[in-house]
Amino acid sequence: MQATEVIKLVLGEGLPMIGRLLLYDAMKMSFREVKVRRNPDCELCGEHPSVKELIDYQAFCNVPLGVEEAEVFDGSAYEMTPKALKQLLDSDEQPVLLDVREPYEWDICRIEGAELMPLSSFKADQTGITTDTPIVLYCYKGVRSMSALQELKKAGFSKLNNLEGGIDRWALEVDPDMPRY
């Protein structure tokens, strides 16, 4: 469809999608069209434009977050390398291993002995785990599990670790038979 639009413009034939937006939903196999009008207040093509040359798009798209959200959590003290986790799991002091990925990811691969607690429905006060239990969290790359770790920390849990680099790094460094996705 994109190619057809290019070809129509070159040929000068047909009705190009100028001023129209096509919305396609493959799951519903539905096509919807909405009109798009020129915005007289548009910062680029409006009557009083403020964008008069190319700008810093990285800054433009990194819309500053609210004050609370902007508070950065330094999780480096909680990071545990895949090798260190492997040693811990092989020892007698087994921690509770929490996988905070979503079920479809769990179906692809998982670390043996882990328990699934998806971040999307994660509640730090409903884990059924006592706050002095050693816990290691992991996700795909280690970011989501760090936010679950923060919630657990706020809820009073004291022995927390995060698998650095997530299950993806685990597959690279500890379990080469594990599929990567």
Partner: peptide, 22 residues
Amino acid sequence: FQGQLSVFDPASGGPCYRCLYS
């Protein structure tokens, strides 16, 4: 599973992407 398609051509009087998403 969702896609969008449009042609932006302010030179011929149409809107631009910023008119749609400022």
